[in-house]
Each structure stands twice: as structure tokens, then as C-alpha cells.
Design a binder for these strands. Structure first.
Lengths: 195, 195
DNA sequence: CAGATGACAGATTTCAATATCTGTCATCTG
DNA sequence: CAGATGACAGATATTGAAATCTGTCATCTG
């Protein structure tokens, strides 16, 4: 975090903010801290982000987008939609659980950020259900799924698996038996979708 | 809340505690307040409940049990298990949504209490999934459901509908479109269960 | 002159003192 | 003597003064 003479960009501010949030947590991370980490005055940060809330929002979006990108690969694969959907949910669950388990403090930090910015979260959920919709559509096209409205079915499947990706359930993800519960819900959902 | 000369019972303390919680909220409701409302010393309250936590736990359990009892009637009815399960989930969603919508402050109070006592909540969930299991078993017996392990399927159905009964989603229950989302998930679950 | 600065006002947070609460128990009362 | 009491110690919450932060803007600098 040595002050550098590189030009101050939104990206550098974002990276510094992530670091400050990691170190200080959501309550104590201030714009002044971010500016100090970059070796600039806090007024300069406000040139790139209108408010502290906007800065946090950008950080949150970046964090959520990384998950979406990791799952996009599964959607693009060319194989049985049912097992692709199972793998997609398994990957989503694994990714979230890893984040929550590896650095619980950082995960708690992002839970706070997520609670602040419903708009970003809605966009993230729209992203994910969009991916799922593609899988459902593919399944309908191949005749293995029966869904009158793929977007509605995708959203229902996403909602139904909430216990395995919604952060509000994070504390349950380490308990024994959660794997079995996950398998049972995914099996139920896939049975409900099949033609 | 005039001090009466009736004997001090656990029930009267419970009722007074509910009232104090309603008035003061979870953060400011003290054992001293409860004793004052009953016109006794706080030492007397500790004769009936070992700790403040135990008192709150009892109040929480009472609150949760009222929901379980309201649903038990649907389980006992003698008709098509599929529509009975649909009605059961609809009644559960309606009951929770009514509680959250009618008195948001009181609902928030109970959310705090619920967060304090995981054991009571686990028992409540076991109660509810037990009721669901009976419906699933009945469906299997009648040949309309296909479930290798009714308890597992019941739990999966309960988990899958979490968005419509778990308090952590309460703020979404007033949004337009939630009814449609509910119908979609219940339809998916019922399709997944049918023989 | 584009971009950085830091002083400033009002809002928010921190901190330490003060007050209240929890849980215990020796004592009292009917 | 069963059950209620209130004083007490240690833990927790409240409060208000002081410190810090947010967001703006007139000024400065390369």
C-alpha cells in the first residue's frame, strides 16, 4: 500500500477499498482510510465515486460478479441439461460455502455490504437466474425438461435452492447433513422439471 | 398491568414478558420490567425461570407453537394429499406474512428472539417437517406421491419453500410478484413429488 | 485547465463515566 | 417452611462530550 505516483483510477480505488474492508471490516472502513492507503487526499476519491455508498456498491458488485463468471462456463457446456443444472447448483453451493468457510470475517463483511445495496443484489440474482434459464431452455429444446415458461421455472429452481446459496443460511453450511439436504432438494427440483 | 394478589405462576410471568417485549422491544425489555409489570420483585421471577435467556426462550416457543397448532388441522384432514400440501404451504405462508405485515415491530422483536435460541427453532422446524412428513406418507400410501423416504422428501419440500416462510425473507413478502413466485415453487415441488 | 488538495460544516462515531441490569443469596413473612 | 424480598457484585447499557468522518468547494499545482 505504499503511495505510488501512478494515476489515480477507479480500479485502483476499488482495489484499495477491498483491502481496507478486509483489514478494518465494514463498520470501520472509511473513505479517509482508502485515501490514506493510496497516499492521496480523500477529496480525490470523491472525484471518482460520488459517495461512500457508491464506492461500496462497486466493491460489492465486483465481488458478486466473480461468482457469476465462474458459473457461466457450466452454462456454455454442451451436455445433458439435467446433470448440467445439478453441476451448476453444486458449483454455486461450493463457491459460496468456500467463501464463507475460508474467511468468515471477510464473508461477514460482504454480507453487510450486500444488505446495504439491494439494487446490486437484484442484478446479481437476475444474472444467475438468467444463466439457469438458458439451461432450462436447452432442456426444453432437447425434450428432457417440461417447462411452460423457462424463466419462471428457472426462478423457482433458484428460489427452491436458496438454503444452499443465500448468505443468510451461511452458518448452516458447515453442519453435518447439509450435503444430504442439498442432494434431496436438487433431486426434487430436477424431478419437478423433467418431461 | 395492575399488581394483583393472585399467585405468581410461570404462565403469568410469560404473559407479562410478552407484553413487556411488545412495549419495549427486545433490547430494552428487562427482567426488572417484567417484575414491575407484575408488581413483584425481580427475585421472584428468577424462582420460575433460571435465567433471562430461559424466560425469553419460553416466550419464543409459545409464539412458534401457535403457528404449528394452526397448521395441524390441515394435516388431519382426509382428502387429496397434493392439494392438502398446497394448502398447508399456503396457510404457512399466509400466517407468517400476516404476522410480519400486521405488526412489523413485534415481528422484528421475535426475529431477534429466534436468533438467540437455535434449539427452540430446531424443535419448531422438526414439528413442521413432521407434519409435512405425515402428508407425504399419506400421499405415498394413496399412490399419488413417489418418495423413497417421506421424511427426506418432506424436509426437501420444506427447504425448497424457505423463501415463503423463513423470517429472513420477510421484507420480500410484501413485494408484488411474490404470490406468483410462491405458486411456481409449490408447483415445482408438487411435480417433483408426484408418482 | 484537469486534476489534486485540505479547510470546513454538519453528521456520525468513540470513549469513559455513570446508571441500570442480571443473577445470587441471606433474610424476612404469612 | 415455601415463597417472596431487596442488597449486592460483576456485567451490560446509556449518555454526553470530544474526536472523527462525509461530502463540498474555493484554491492550488504541474
Amino acid at each position: 500500500m505504499a503511495p505510488t505516483s501512478e494515476t489515480l483510477t477507479a480500479e485502483r480505488i476499488l482495489a484499495a477499498t477491498e483491502e481496507v474492508l478486509r483489514r478494518h471490516g465494514p463498520a470501520k472502513a472509511t473513505v479517509v482510510d482508502v485515501a490514506r492507503a493510496l497516499g492521496v487526499s480523500h477529496g480525490s476519491v470523491y472525484r471518482h465515486f460520488r459517495t461512500k455508498a457508491a464506492l461500496r456498491e462497486a466493491v460489492t458488485q465486483h465481488w458478486l460478479d466473480r461468482t457469476s463468471e465462474a458459473l457461466a462456463g457450466i452454462v456454455a457446456e454442451d451436455r445433458d441439461p439435467a446433470s448440467r443444472m445439478r453441476d451448476w447448483f453444486t458449483a454455486l453451493f461450493a463457491a459460496k460455502r468456500k467463501k464463507a468457510g475460508d474467511d468468515p470475517q471477510l464473508f461477514a463483511t460482504y454480507q453487510v455490504l450486500i444488505g446495504e445495496t439491494s439494487a446490486v443484489v437484484e442484478r446479481h440474482i437476475a444474472d444467475l437466474t438468467g444463466q439457469l434459464t438458458e439451461i432450462v431452455q436447452d432442456g426444453v429444446a432437447r425434450g428432457v425438461f417440461d417447462a411452460a415458461d423457462p424463466a419462471v421455472s428457472a426462478r423457482a429452481a433458484f428460489d427452491a435452492t436458496g438454503r444452499f446459496h443465500d448468505p443468510c443460511y451461511a452458518r448452516e453450511w458447515e453442519q453435518p447433513g447439509i450435503e444430504a439436504d442439498f442432494e434431496a432438494v436438487v433431486a426434487l427440483v430436477l424431478r419437478g422439471l423433467r418431461a
